[in-house]
Simulated assay, not measured.
Amino acid sequence: MNRCLLLSWNIRGLGKFEKKATVRNLVKKTRAKILFLQESKLQEVNGKIAGQLFGKHSSFNYCFSSSIGSAGGIITSWDPDFFEIENRLIDRNYIILIGKLVKENIRCCLVNVYASNDDSHRLQMFHALKNNLFDFNLPVILGGDFNVVSSTEERSEGSVNKVAIRNFNSFIEELAVIDLPLHGSRFTWSNYRDNPSFSRLDRFLLSTEFLRVWLDILQSAFPKGISDHNPICLAILNTCWGPRPFKWFNHLADDNEYVEQIIEAYNMASREGIEKMLKKCKLVSKAWVQSKSGNSIQEMEKRCAEIEEIIVKGNYDQ
């Protein structure tokens, strides 16, 4: 399974124990480090509810934005070993965590978004959220239910509000964030009617800084299950290429310094058995090659530059 970093889900209410158990099982299955929940419809989240969501002995921390009546409600939770929080900003439509990704040593903002389905209210939220993020001036990961599509292709049928699409794309462009391709499903929401319509309302948006840290990052959708929204996951692709092979080239034996180091390594480990002797020679060989490769690369780059200059000069002379 891929390594899940962030999991986001518009859960459409967390009043029933079965829904809390479903969330807990998905977090356990994916081993997500950050959880964004939208539309919890909860006015209060306490330790008991947190235990039902993450397990009684979970180390997850959490914060929430209360619902207004049965509308809204956002919950953000995180593993403190993965993310160290410095501050938070809680709004009716989003929660911003400011802190540091521990392993990557990156200060950033994590934003759980639950946008209004009213165009004017959603646009106001985009402006407010954008201004807050500009003030923090940090790389950002936004995830959640944006309640708007970014293109006509993200809706299966029916009319599309092109002004809302344009406003959403302006928000994405001004924040300079990237919307990765979605794997697992083309859409993330359905109205479950006799003639259903589908839309992609849920997504992650992230700054380009994270693409340099997580090279194989992707976002994917899981089956809807108990909600009319798909859970979406921001994950790192686990590709196993097997053990890295050790390469040895004949020309290495032409260097006397290299040969002397291998002979010395052989003599030191020859009485410890063939396996340890070969391992010792391998380590010495790799260290010697690495110590020489920097100079070799610089020499090759210099030589390439000289050849290129000769070619360019020859073309001009002609």
Rank of each mutant, 00 (worst) to 15 (best):
M1E: 10
M1L: 02
L6I: 13
N10D: 05
L14D: 02
A21T: 03
N25T: 07
K29F: 10
T30E: 02
I34H: 03
S40F: 00
S40K: 02
L42P: 02
L42Q: 03
V45W: 00
Q52I: 00
L53M: 12
L53N: 10
K56N: 14
H57I: 08
S58W: 00
S59V: 10
S77Y: 08
D79V: 05
E84R: 15
N87H: 13
N93L: 08
I95A: 10
C108I: 06
V113H: 01
N117G: 07
R122A: 14
P139W: 12
G143P: 00
V148M: 01
S151P: 14
E157P: 00
R166E: 12
N169H: 05
F171Y: 15
L175T: 01
A176I: 07
P196Q: 10
R200D: 03
E209F: 15
F210M: 01
L215Y: 10
L215K: 15
L218H: 09
S220W: 12
F222H: 14
A235W: 05
I236R: 12
W241F: 10
F246T: 05
K247I: 07
F249E: 14
N250A: 13
H251C: 04
Y258T: 11
N267V: 04
M268F: 09
S270G: 07
V289K: 13
G294P: 05
S296L: 14
S296G: 02
A305G: 10
I307L: 15
I310N: 08
I311P: 05
V312H: 12
G314Y: 13
Y316T: 06
Q318I: 11
Q318P: 05
